[in-house]
Structure formats: C-alpha cells, structure tokens
C-alpha cells in the first residue's frame, strides 16, 4: 500500500512563478457539471457497495434519474444565461442512454471529458489492463458522440486505484481532477507521458456541501461566493483557478437553482474573470507555465 501520494512535488504557496491568464484575468473560473448515470442494478465492487440500500435503491436511483430528466435542463439554461460553459465530467454511457443531453451540451459549446462509464463502476481493484480498456473505450465514446477529444479525466466517484494516474498519462490524457492538492494547475509525476492536475473541488462541490454538510441553499451561495472572493483577491498576484463542481440532481432542484444563479451572477459581475473550460486552462498552462513550474521545482522552490 502507498503511504504517500506519489504524483507531485511540494510547491509552497509563496514565490511561485507567476501565472497569468488570457486577457490579464486574475482567476480562471470553470464549472464542472457531473452528468452521471448510476445503474439500477450494478455489479458489486469488493471495496465499495454502489448503493446504501439493497438493490433496487429506488430512493437514490430515482433521485439521480431526476438530474437527467429535470435538473440538467434547468441548470444548463441558467449557465447559458450567464455565458458560462460547462466542462462536463461525463459518465460516458450517458451518450448511449440519453443522447439528447449530449446534443444539448454540444449545442452550448461545452467540453466533455470522462468520468468513467457509469458512476457505479469503480476503479477500485481493476487491473491495469482493465483501467486502460475503460479509458480507451471512454475516449472512443466521447469522440463518436461529440467529435471531441477526451482531454480530461475524473475517476468515477473519485474511486482511483494506485496506478490510475500513471495509466492516464500513458494513454495521453491531458489533465486529471483526481487530486485536490492545489489552487493552481500543477505538473504531475507519472512513470511515462505528461499529465497535469487542474483544480477540482470538494469544498464548493454541491455533494459534500449539500448532502454531507447539510447546507441550506443561501449558505451554499455564500460559501461559493466567499471561495471566489478570496481566489479573486489572491489572483491579483498570480492567477488562480476556481472550479465549481455541480450535480444536476442537486443544484437543479427548484429550491436551489436560485442559489446557483446567485453564484454565477456574482462571479460574472467581476472584471478579470476568465470563464474557461478545463481544456482551455490546461492548454494555456502547458503553453505558458508548465516548464517554468517544473524548473522552479527542480531548483528546490526558492
């Protein structure tokens, strides 16, 4: 077993080589809708049961189903109103089950990246060959459904195994969201290839906030705005990233949509905000900052 996450060097939050964003923006703000399908009757995984109740877990299955039938459409409408594109963390089987959702995402100019096949198929315990097979199949599915390349990755239910990041790098995946160690993109250490990390978030992610921390809608908006305000302020020194991960089955609920809208209104009312996608953030970082960060690490982060 690992005692350490082996994928990055220590990079203190001081005297880092400065990150600049396009147009002189202070902050790259990106919204990650997790568009998922949780299976009605999934196979068991040795490390995690997919459902808390015996199958069928009608309450939890139907709640997530609501996200695709109702929540997604509302959420997408609000984002479009504020000119915010999504970078979709996609269970790629959604391309087969609900192609109308994929059509809508493409119509809105959203990026699609992989969040595995289903949110009930974990990477825990997969062999390297199995992980590789899923990654390759996911890339093909996204290409077939949208014509897009699969640049990004978030392991389904963040269920990565020890070698997942290495395999992503070997398979040519551009960026991963499985690591929560930073507020900027960072280089990652993998046995081959070139993988970078872009900030995701569990702090302003609606699942931990609304379900695990029992946050009412107005507090959700206040917390997300506070997260933005600090990263925006610090971004004057060196460009930061704020990721707002959302789940249609939660944020699209009629009692929460206004809180989500309030966050988008707050963010888009500021100058100096780059409304980006994951792919755009990764490309800019690679073109302008990756080498400098690597050199700084090599020099011992002076």
């Amino acid at each position: 077993m690992l005692s350490d996450c082996p994928h990055y060097a220590f990079m203190p939050w001081r005297r880092r080589p400065r990150i600049t964003w396009p147009g002189g923006a202070r902050i790259a703000f990106w919204v990650v809708p997790n568009i998922e399908h949780y299976e009605y009757d999934p196979p068991p995984n040795p490390r995690r049961m997919p459902w808390t109740r015996p199958v069928p877990d009608v309450l939890n299955y139907s709640w997530r189903d609501w996200g695709n039938r109702v929540g997604f459409w509302r959420m997408a409408e609000v984002m479009a109103r504020y000119g915010v594109r999504g970078s979709v963390s996609l269970n790629v089987a959604v391309c087969d089950h609900y192609p109308e959702i994929i059509e809508r995402c493409c119509e809105l100019g959203w990026e699609l990246f992989s969040h595995g096949t289903y949110n009930t198929r974990y990477f825990y315990g997969m062999s390297e060959e199995q992980q590789r097979a899923v990654i390759r199949e996911n890339r093909e599915t996204i290409r077939r459904a949208s014509g897009q390349e699969m640049d990004g990755w978030l392991t389904p239910a963040i269920s990565n195994d020890e070698t997942t990041q290495h395999i992503l790098a070997e398979e040519g995946v551009n960026y991963t969201l499985d690591l929560l160690h930073d507020d900027q993109p960072t280089p990652l250490i993998t046995r081959a290839g070139s993988l970078i990390s872009i900030p995701y978030s569990l702090e302003v992610n609606d699942v931990p906030l609304l379900i695990m921390r029992n946050t009412p809608p107005d507090r959700y908006a206040a917390i997300c705005k506070a997260q933005f305000d600090t990263l925006y302020e610090e971004g004057a020194e060196s460009g930061t990233v704020m990721c707002l991960p959302v789940h249609p089955y939660l944020i699209g609920q009629p009692h929460r949509l206004a809180a989500f809208e309030e966050v988008l209104r707050h963010v888009t009312s500021h100058d100096g905000v780059w409304l980006a996608t994951g792919r755009e953030i990764a490309a800019h970082y690679r073109a302008h900052h990756l080498a400098e960060h690597q050199a700084w690490i090599a020099a011992g982060t002076p």
């Binding site: 399908h37 299976e39 009605y40 009757d41 196979p43 995984n45 040795p46 189903d65 089987a93 087969d96 089950h97 609900y98 192609p99 096949t117 289903y118 198929r121 315990g125 997969m126 062999s127 390297e128 060959e129 199995q130 097979a133 899923v134």
Partner: peptide
C-alpha cells in the same frame, strides 16, 4: 494484478433510454 471479474467491464443494459423497463 488479477483485477475484477470480467463482468465488471460488461454493460448489458447500456442502451438508449433506461437500464430497466
């Protein structure tokens, strides 16, 4: 690594619409 049973990578209900009837 032996990995998971091969069924874990098979998706018999991956199709248009729901994964039940």
């Amino acid at each position: 690594m032996t990995g998971l049973p091969e069924e874990y990578l098979r998706y018999p209900r991956r199709r248009r619409g729901m994964d039940h009837d």
